[in-house]
Design a protein around this nucleic acid. Sequence first.
RNA 1: GGCCCAAUGGUUCAGUCGGUUAGAACGCCGCCCUGUCACGGCGGAGGUCAGGGGUUCGAGUCCCCUUUGGGUCGCCA
Length: 598
Amino acid sequence: MNESMAGMKRTHYAAELSMSNANEKVTVMGWVQKRRNLGSVIFLDIRDRSGLIQVFLDEPVLGPEDFAKGERLRAEFVVAVEGVVQRRGDGGVNPNLKTGEIEIRATALRILNHAETPPFHIEDDVNAKEDLRLKYRYLDLRRPVLQKNLILRHKVTTAARQFLDKEGFLEIETPMLTRSTPEGARDYLVPSRINQGMFYALPQSPQIFKQLLMLSGYDRYMQIAKCFRDEDLRADRQPEFTQIDMELSFVNQEDILDLNERLLQYIFKQVMDMELSLPFKRITYKEAMERFGSDKPDMRFGLELKDLAELAAGCGFSVFADTIKSGGSVRAINAKGMAELPRKQIDALTELCKYHGAKGMAYLAVKDGEVKSSFAKFLTETEIQKLLQLTEAEDGDLILAVADKEEVVFKVLGELRLEIARRLNYLDKNVYDFVWVTEFPLLEWSEEQGRYMAKHHPFTTPMEEDIPLLDTDPGKVRAVAYDICLNGNELGGGSLRIYHRHLQEKMFEALGFSKEEAYERFGFLLDAFQYGVPPHGGLAFGLDRMVMLMAKADSIREVIAFPKVKDASDPMSDAPNIVEEKQLRELGIQVIKPEGEK
RNA sequence: GGCCCAAUGGUUCAGUCGGUUAGAACGCCGCCCUGUCACGGCGGAGGUCAGGGGUUCGAGUCCCCUUUGGGUCGCCA
C-alpha cells in the first residue's frame, strides 16, 4: 500500500546534510538505493539528485509499524524519512560517501511508492548494454553520472546566458517551422495540413533568421538553439542537437574571436573552476593541414607532419620520386620511441592508412644505430641521413611516410597521427587545449554535384584580397571563416557574412546558381539585402560536444537526456512510428509502400 | 548504402577440439542475524544459448541469412 506524504515536508536534499546538522530533525525524500537488513536494525541508503544518505532504522525509536515497513522495502521504492541527524555509531565512517560521517536515525518512515526490480542496477559502474539502458532511459537517468552530466549542461547554458547578457546580447527565438533550403545537410520535413502538398523544414541552424535580426537592428543576438539534420548518426552526432548560437553587428573577426574566448573562459571558470589562459592559439587552415593533417587538430601533443619533398624529389625510391614528379606530396610522422613496434603492428598501421585511402605506408625504424626499413634499400646513405634530419629522428624513433595526392596524404597522416597518439597514451582528457583555425577555403569542389559548394555556408564572406579569384580560381578563395577546436573536436564555427547584395549574387554565381535559382531559394534574403545590412558575423558552438568534453564522456548520448540511436530512432518511445491513416488523409499524404506489400 | 564488432537466466560474463544434466558472480524469493555500507549465514527459483535455415550420429560452439545494438567510411553547407 502506498502512503501519502501529507503532513510531511522535505527539509533537505540527502547529500546536503553534514555534521553541522547534528541533532536536527530533518525529512528527506527519495529512492531506496540499498537496504541492508541486519535483523533488528536496518540500514537504508536513500538517493536523490544530490547523492546518498544512510538511514538507520531500529524498532525502539521507529516503532513496530514503521519498522515493519522497513522490512518490506526494496530497491527503488520511493520513501519519505523523518529523523534526527547523528554521527554514525560503532561501524565508523564510510569514506566513499560525501555524507559518510553521518546518518539519519529514523523516527518515521513512509512508503510513497513501490517499484518493480529494475532491469539493471542503478549505479555508476553499470555494465548493462546501451540498448537496454536506452530502452529504460528514465531509469538510466537516475544514475548519478548522468544526473551530474545534465546538471553540468544546465550550468554551461546558464553561464553562457549570463556572460552574453552582460555583453549586451538579446536572446531571441527563431522558428522551428521554416522553409527548406536544400544546400547543405538533408532537411527534416514537416507536411503542412493547410497547404496540402507543401512542407516546412526543421531548421539546420537559425542562420538566415539571425542574419535578418542583424539587418533589423538587434545588434547582438544569442539563442540556445535546437537544430535538426537528417544525416547518419555518430558518437558525436545526433539528428537533433543544440547550439549556443550568436550573431553580432559592426564587428570584425578579431572582435568575435576575442568575445568567444572570453565566453569559453567564463564557462570553464564558472562550471569547472578551471582557468583558461587567453588568447587561444591561432593557426590557419593551411597550417593546420600541413602540420596536423586535419582542420580540427588535436593540439595536446606533437607528432607533427614533416614534408619530405626535398628528399623525395629524385631519390632512389621511385614511389616517392614519381609522386613528387606528378605533383603529389610525400610526408611523414615521427612516432617517437616506437622503433621496436613489432612487424604485425606496423602492418596494422599500414592497413589503417589503406583504409583511409593510401596505397601504402613506408616505414623506417632507427634502433641502436641500425636502420630497419621497408624502403631504405632504395636510398643512399646521404638520403637516409636527409630523411632523419627532416623528420628530426633520434635513436628509437619510427618514421612513417605516405606518398600520394596532397589531400590523401593529409587525411591519412592525420588519422595515423591520432592512432599513434592513442597508442602512446597522449590523449589526456583532463587537458583542454583550444585552437582557432582560420582562413578556411570558401568553396569546395563537389564531384557528386559537379560544382563548387560552400564549405561553411553560402553567406560566408570571402577574404578581401581573394575576391578577384572568385572569377579565375574559385577553389583558392579563402573565407573569413573560423572554427574553434578543442582536443581534436570541432567545438564551434562561424564567419563574417556577406552584407553587400552584389557580392552575395556573385557568391551564388560561383556556386553555380542562376539568378532565377538563387531567387527561388533565397529570394527573401536577397530582397532584404536591399534595405541596409550592417557588417555582421557570428558563431555557433555545438553545446552537446562541449558538455561531452567537459564531462569527459565518450559520446554525446551521455549528455543528452533522451538521445536517439544509430538509426535515428528512440528505443524508449519507439519514435519514429506509423501514424493513423486519418492523419495522413488530412495532410494529403499517400504512403508509397515497397512492391509486394499490401 | 559499404566495412568491422557484439548478442548465453533479470544483469554482467565463462563455456576448451563440436560430445553426458549449460556454469559463476551479482540480482530476485524465503528463513536467520543489533552497527552495516560489496553486510553476513542457510535454502530456493530462474535458460526458446537473439530468430530462422544448413552441415553433422551429435551444434551454445562450424556455415549462411535475418533481427537488434555499437563503431566507422560515405554523408554531415
